[in-house]
Design a binder for these strands. Structure first.
Length: 306
RNA sequence: GCACCGGUGCCCGAGUGGACCAAGGGAACGGCCUGCAAAGCCGUAAAGUCGCGGGUUCAAAUCCCGCCCGGUGCU
């Protein structure tokens, strides 16, 4: 096998069962430690809602990049990337193997493709944000970095501002920081994806929320929201929906429906993101992700053959 | 029982006689993506006996009559 580092990636949409599959793999191959590739499991206290592995599971299998930031603080991709690199170095130093598990596409690619993420330039950004005219902003980007301008929707304010912020701040076109997300260069990481039908994902999403509520999700929501959440932690699915139920803004059923739909949409977006990457080897799961344990183990053993 | 309000695509919903071969939104499906990514942006088609039956009119989702269903109020 072509793997240089012997680390395996296990990806899939939310509620696909990748975490339990990963734990099973780690149990059968004690050399494995789990490296979470999840933008929300990083927050402390956001456990039930983000389906973070339990304390017992974490005691049994070493997990990384879980509960490393406060929900009140921002934690962005580049910080995540740095933390992941550190964990990876640590794992390698101890001659262990990493199993990268998660569904946050950008974060995963930041690690496996070692993206060069341009820095931040707050002063520049502040100035750009004061410009309300989107057309002007896009025109400006078109002038300074036509490649980037061409690639993005002229209506995507957030991304136009970011590209301009970098181009002006770093004095180097945004588009020159890398080949872009549509390029899939060779990577030392071997990626495995698990795929389930949309119907069964939808069903699992609903059942998972039901169980999370039983497990005390509402108390968690109350706790987290009371302290306030940062810009990066705020979009975690389920929290705002159930919080507005707790505030009496709508019924429990409405909150549940909103949460389920938002999560379903997220799963679709994940599916579309991952299916573009031709480097992923896919396994079809009918009901339970554990069905494919042996297939995954086989690949793990192959890339780690001496 | 009486009165009033309402019944429009999978859901919400505009429309009160001709520009309605029925707006818009949500959902669905698809595309994009390098510091908010569980985020953000964009595109697409499909789907309607306009509760049912009758009537008025050159023309009805829109007016009239009856019925059915839901909500509210009154006795």
């Amino acid at each position: 096998m072509a793997s240089l580092n012997g680390h395996l990636v296990l990806l899939g949409t939310t509620a696909s069962g990748k975490s339990s599959l990963a734990i099973e793999i780690a149990k059968k191959r004690p050399i494995v430690e789990i490296l979470s590739m999840d933008s929300m499991a990083i927050y402390k206290g956001m456990d039930i809602g983000t389906a973070t592995p339990s304390k017992e599971e974490q005691k049994e299998i070493r997990h990384h990049l879980i509960n490393i930031a406060k929900p009140t603080e921002e934690f962005s991709v580049s910080q995540f990337q740095e933390a992941a690199k550190n964990s990876l170095r640590d794992i390698e130093k101890r001659k262990q193997k990493a199993l990268l598990v998660g569904g946050t596409g950008l974060h995963l690619r930041a690690v496996i493709d070692d993206l060069t993420i341009p820095g931040q330039f707050p002063e520049v950004k502040r100035e750009l944000e004061s410009e309300k005219d989107l057309v002007k902003l896009h025109a400006r980007l078109k002038e300074l970095d036509p490649v980037a301008a061409n690639k993005m929707e002229p209506t995507n304010r957030r991304r136009i501002i970011r590209a301009l912020e970098v181009t002006i701040g770093a004095d180097k076109p945004f588009s020159e920081f890398g080949p872009g997300m549509d390029s899939y260069p060779p990577t030392p990481f071997t990626q495995i994806g698990i795929h389930l039908s949309r119907d069964s994902i939808d069903e699992k999403i609903f059942k998972r929320y039901t169980k999370q509520i039983d497990d005390g999700f509402l108390e968690e929501v109350e706790q987290i929201m009371r302290d306030g959440v940062s810009r990066t932690a705020a979009p975690a699915l389920g929290y705002s929906e159930f919080y507005s139920y707790l505030c009496g803004e709508h019924s429990f059923e409405e909150a549940m429906e909103k949460a389920v739909i938002a999560t379903r949409k997220f799963a679709r977006r994940q599916e579309r993101w991952f299916r573009r990457d031709p480097r992923i080897t896919w396994f079809e799961v009918e009901q339970d992700s554990l069905e494919v344990v042996d297939s995954v183990l086989k690949i793990f053993d192959e890339i780690n053959k001496v």
